[in-house]
Each structure stands twice: as C-alpha cells, then as structure tokens.
Write a protein that binds this DNA or RNA. Structure first.
Length: 155
DNA sequence: GTTCCGTATATAG
DNA sequence: CTATATACGGAAC
C-alpha cells in the first residue's frame, strides 16, 4: 500500500508491503495539494510526529533491503544506529567499516527509505554532503532535529 | 580559497 | 576485465 503525507514544506510517500517498508520518497511540498494523513498506520503517524518536531526513533521498522549489496546493508545498518539529533561524517563511518568515505556516500545514495533509515545524519567533514532528494531537504530534516550546518557548505 | 589525487564500491561496456 | 562515476577527504597550490 502507498501512502502520502505532507507538511507545508515536505511531501513524504511511503510504500508498505504489509508491515515491511519498501520505499520512502521525499520531495518538496507542492503548495497546491495538502494530502490528508490517513491515520491508523503506525509508521505514518510517527513520521507525521517526527516532521512536527517529535523525537521519534524509527529503528523498530523493518525495511526491505532486497537488491542491495551486503556492503550497502552494512552501511545502512550502521546508519540506523545513529541517534536522533546526532550527526556523523562519511569519514567516521568509513573508518568504522574499514572503507573509504566515497564508498559510504555511494552506499547511502541507495537508501530506499530516507527518514526511516536516517542517512541525513551523515554529513561531510567540511560541508553538509549530498542527498539524493536534494540537499535542501537534508538541511530541513537536520533543522527539524535541531542541527544547523556550518555556513561553510562546500559542494 | 582553489585543484588534484587516492580511495572503495558500483555499473556499463 | 577495463573504464567511468560518485552523497569524500586530504594534500598541494
């Protein structure tokens, strides 16, 4: 089943297969439509709470990692352990997993479920780093968690 | 501040 | 297998 949820700045689409999270996509909200949140689905309610500033932990939700490599799963698994409001750098994760910072970014770009797997908490040593659905959204998510990135954002 | 390599992983040819 | 592309980092200008 597919659900959509919007705030004033962000639109989130979640695809569920029973209780397994298949996919989460993010886009900047088109000011035209405000979708009504269909309640009764735990994950949607929690995402909604999260977007409104709630300190939500999504690590209990199962995400379908079918089609991803073992390496990508290891990286995403590590990212799921990053607590709310905390950021780590690509380089730090790379050291922990005995790989290179670029390989970390590479793996994160395949994250099928942003927010649920909080890849926005991984940033560069010098700047905010990248984000598949747009760095602006990454910034927004971090801001929700009370994190502001240094003005020195290199690209 | 820039530019240029080294690095690990993924993908295309 | 070789070449190319990265959501990086660090060294060198």
């Amino acid at each position: 089943m597919r659900y959509t949820l919007s705030t004033d700045t962000l639109t989130v689409t979640v695809t569920l297969d029973h209780s397994i999270v298949k996919k989460v996509t993010l886009r900047e909200a088109d000011q035209s439509v405000e979708d009504v949140v269909e309640s009764g689905v735990d994950l949607l309610d929690e995402i909604s709470a999260y977007l409104n500033g709630g300190r939500v932990d999504f690590s209990r939700y199962a995400v379908d990692l079918e089609g991803l490599t073992d390496f990508q799963r290891r990286v995403l698994g590590k990212v799921r352990q990053i607590p709310y409001g905390v950021v780590v750098t690509y380089g730090t994760l790379a050291r922990e997993l005995q790989t290179s910072p670029r390989a970390i970014g590479n793996a994160l770009s395949r994250n099928p479920a942003p927010i649920v797997i909080p890849c926005h908490r991984v940033i560069g040593k010098h700047g905010i780093g990248g984000f598949t659905s747009g760095v602006a959204i990454k910034e927004h998510l971090l801001q929700i968690e009370g994190i502001s990135i240094d003005p020195s954002s290199n690209k």
